[in-house]
Design a protein around this nucleic acid. Sequence first.
DNA 1: GGCTTCACG
DNA 2: ACGTACGTGAAGCCG
Length: 850
Amino acid sequence: MEKLLLLDGNSLINRAFYALPPLNNPQGQQVQAVFGFATMLVKMFDTIKPDYIVTAFDVHAPTFRHKMYDGYKASRKGMPDELAAQMPVLKEMLDVMGIKRVELAGYEADDLIGTLSKRFDTETYIVTGDRDSLQLIDAKTRVLLTRRGITDTDEYDLNTIEEKMGLTPSGVIDYKSLAGDGSDDIPGVAGVGDKTAKSLLSKYGDLDGVYAQIDSVTPVSLKNKLIDGKESAYLSKTLATIDTAVPMECELSDCGYKFPFSSEVFAFFERQGFKSLIRRGELFDTSVGLPVAPKREKAQERMLVGLDEIKSVLKDKSDVALYVEGELFHLAVDEKTEYTVSLHYDFFSSGVSESELIAALKDMLCDPKVTKTVFDSKSFITYLYKNFKFVAQGFFDVRLAQYIADATVPHATLESLLDAYSIDRKDIASGMLGLKKSLDKELEETGMHRLYYDIELPLVKVLFDMEQAGFAVNREKLEEIGAIFTAEEKSLEKQIHAAAGKAFNIKSPKQLAKVLFEDLGIPYPKKGAKTYNTSAEILEQLDASYTIVPLVLRYRFITKLNATYVDGLRKLIDSKGTVHTEFRQTLTTTGRLSSVEPNLQNIPVREEDGKVLRSLFFAREGFTLVSADYSQIELRIMAHYSGDPTMRRAYLDGTDIHAYTAAQVYGVPLEQVTPLMRRTAKTVNFGIIYGISEFGLASSLKIAKGEAKKFIENYFERFSGVREYLDNCVSEAKKNGYVTTLLGRRRKIPELFSPVYFTRQFGERAAMNMPLQGTAADIIKIAMLNVSRALEGMRSRLILQVHDELIVETALDEVAAVKEILRDKMENAFTLSVPLVVDISEGKSWFDCK
DNA sequence: GGCTTCACG
DNA sequence: ACGTACGTGAAGCCG
């Protein structure tokens, strides 16, 4: 018999949307739901081999919609805009595939599917995530319910529905009439749930049976609930019943489709970036001469036993891939063969021990002429250094290359990367050689070859050295400061509890809000707020006559310092009194580094009482700290990029930029700029870097939006080049889908294509900020490479980077030389049209560097 | 595990 | 009509 496949378009795309991570097409639009739908379809073609397909969609009665700035908003409550935006793409896909789609105003997809399932006398498969559809099962109709993933389904037919659900198809309706369905707004009978509904149905057959013998229902309480809920039960029955007689035109002969796919489908997949589908040649009709990419052959698997065999495979090879996975060591010298070595070594087994293997490979690992392709080279050389005490070199880092190629996928795993390039997960090492080839080409094509090979890759070793060097921490002083903090914390806690009139957990924002705004009745500054916010920003606005408020603020401050920096740091000090941060090089979207365990990039500095924590970080015996930081590097980059003559003038003349900005914006001579004017101008300058918005500036300056608007207008009038630059950033980003730094680092900004106004605004600000923040990151990375080279042969060591600051632990007799190196290498890392200026300080501890 | 809060550039 | 400045990490609460 011929087979008909009925798909619930809304339900399935919804599943696909939530089952997959966001995935963007080359234009930056999210398309993961469409991709998931396509994958499901292909699976269905494969397993069911239907003769006919129809996809049904919901069309709700038109509702009033507010006019949007962007003229668009999700049409259905509960559907996120990111999904709604994919509906037209899905429909386009179905059209190019020649798959019939049906929709009818006022009917749900369910009803259309129900009608079609009854209309044709043929074997019918319904695919949906909606359990309601189980009522449509009959001798020729079965239902495939989607499971967790996107291609897995549970099949229900007339036999299995009884076993799996304990219900008949029509029982599904009766069940809902009694138990209701919260997610579908079906009330059911109050007080009747899953268990009761099923036992009633098994006893009385169906809903009518229950009410026919209502007097025999026990216990009496249940009987009364049923009597009270009778009207609701029958209303529910109407609601739960799928309409199988929708007046719609559709004949089986309209429902054919073309598979294998045509060249139009291929072109569609290409436009949407569905690489893994494009690579599957068998999906396409080859008779039309498609440019189908050859499918990557799966590598031959070979187990290597014994060191001699391993050595002979590697002999004279200059391009190898390595991956250690538990007790398995993966190895490849070309893409055709996947070698595995078992590191499980004992008296009986024939495996090779880890230390034997590494010893045998040591020369190769340290030979820069042999390129070792690995996933995360810093982890790999750290592992070798910790366990075997040598420093390997000569790597291609697949994770790093992928991050440079596309930083919107943060910290990708090797599996996700192999999947993305349609490489079998078992081909770990040989697959990495494939990845290397693809990524290398991608970097070349996108102009990021040099960024990767000349900056990021060599930086790995610099970061490794910094991590190993570590930063010495004064443990006695840590305990002293901790004791002081703890004492104050205790005292504050007592005072706060006394002021509140009771003990409560001050660290719980919920409990704190209740005490402040309800128990003590402090007026909440934002009227109409749904939930209380207890952030410092709000607390600072509260009526000064409530003494509890400053106590809470101080308590927050002290506990933050104590928990994060005293307790947090203590746990991470090694036996030598040193902390070794880990720098993450493949994380941020702008190209900055991040620092973890401990994060040494957010040690307090702004508040005096917090800044004392910097005295814990000190230079070891015979050394001192030299710190160098760029002065307003991002604004200088802005001056360079925009070429704004007014702004450049300030930097060329060496004028105080914030005072100068104030003079311009307020229209007064430089000498008449007050500290308040300067402070305001400084905030405006920060705003410029962040991608200014009226709202953001207003909230930062705590002024009205209208006033902020005036500031911005004044600013742009004086610095018109800056406005042109920012506008240009956004328009370029919208045209290309990405922005770039001076060194060609790219950041895709898919948010610019969101249907949601706010998300798009965010994308625009990110487009303005990234070239500035990212170029600053590029420049300090170059400086780090040059500083570290210049320090070779000296005893002084680079130990920390804090975005625009470098710290060198400096041998006492090298102080002058180090200062000169830092100034020279940092100021000359890159030539801009305005000077880069570095401020240098020195001290035994970080606190003393001022 | 998500949310809130707050430390840094 | 609604609510954010850009980029991070850590701690603690809460469900």
